[in-house]
Computed example of a mutant assay.
Amino acid sequence: MRLKSFHAKTMSEAMKLVRQTLGDDAIIVATREEEGGGVRVTAAVEEDDHATAQARLQAARPVEPEIDVGEAVAEALHRHGVPASLAEVLVDAAAGLDTEDPTLALGAALDSVFTFNPLPDARGGGGKTLVLVGPPGGGKTLTVAKLAARAVLKNRTVGVITTDTVRAGGVDQLAAFMRILKVKLISVDDPDALHGAIAVNQGCDLVLVDTAGRNPFDESEMDDLRAMLAAAESEPIMVLPAGLDALEAADTGQAFKALGARRMLLTRLDMARRFGSMLVTAQRTRLSFCDGSVSARVAEGLTPLNPVALARLMMPGQEKTAPARAVRPSGPKAKTMSSPSSRTLP
């Protein structure tokens, strides 16, 4: 027999405590009113009955499965085809963090290895020109339309220029988008014309230049693009589709980095299921992640990338429902980790 006393403000509250602790088999031995207010109930239960009651209570409570953060991150990296050498670095970084959220752990690990530099928000004052470059079929034209739509929706003035005058339908496709946005499109064929078109749009908050897709391994095509970039005197943004072979993507990134690219914009994130090529490219080229396209629709699907946003794309549905604790290094593998915004470039 096991006896236990319970104190509560009312008899009903005391009886509730008895049932919660000893179960429905408990026997009320005594009750009395306390001098300071409230009631005290003494209940008894056989030891075997108590053990059974406790077992029932434990079974009724939902048990959250324990998550091995390092194992979850390793599994995600393997699923995305990340090479073992890079995966080991990221897993070590994630395993040394004080968090039970695999997504936050992967985000902090990505932040420790890569840089994130989203494209600027077009603001008044003019003078910001972005030239989109990349291999054929990478999604540059659609990305220009998305960037223009984003600027228009924020009431920014935007100028759009295309040098893609050879590809069948290239100009027509972009022109159709610009008519909807009520943005004037200028088509140019050579570096001098490009320089003049940018000068014409110098009063706009943002100027976007869509270039023809170039074979990164064809020297003559890259020389033509180099001449266009010299005339533009602006930062080239490499547009890279997700889902490529990792080594091919890295070689492509190296070729466009040689032309001055510092950031890469990722497309087809909604269609690819393995993002290992993006991580390999960023690691080998030291290009920064900027924005990503997650939809084929012009009015949506282009989002600034940061470590946690990229981790969520790689581990959908992995966030814990409880409020996430601060991510802090711990354990023998602890390393100094920066916050998701601390490694962004100026």
Rank of each mutant, 00 (worst) to 15 (best):
L3T: 09
S5D: 12
M11Y: 13
E13N: 02
V18M: 14
R19M: 15
A26N: 07
E33T: 07
E33P: 08
G37L: 09
T42F: 06
A44H: 10
A53W: 04
L57I: 15
Q58Y: 11
V63Y: 05
P65M: 12
G70K: 04
E71P: 02
E71I: 06
E75V: 13
E75P: 04
A84H: 12
A84E: 14
V89S: 14
A95I: 06
G96N: 01
G107M: 05
F114N: 00
N117D: 12
G124F: 10
L132P: 00
G138C: 00
T141V: 01
A151L: 02
N155E: 15
R156S: 15
T163G: 03
T165A: 05
G169Q: 10
R179Q: 13
L185K: 11
S187G: 10
D189Q: 14
D192I: 15
H195C: 05
V200M: 13
N201R: 08
D205Y: 11
T211E: 03
P216R: 12
S220W: 09
E221Y: 05
D224Y: 13
D224Q: 08
L225F: 05
V239Q: 06
P241M: 00
D245H: 07
G260Y: 01
L265C: 12
L265A: 08
T267R: 03
T267E: 02
M278L: 15
V280M: 06
A282W: 00
Q283W: 09
T285G: 09
R286L: 13
L287M: 11
S295K: 03
R297G: 08
R297T: 12
A299V: 07
L302P: 11
L302G: 00
L305H: 00
A311P: 04
G331A: 02
A334T: 10
T344E: 14
L345V: 12
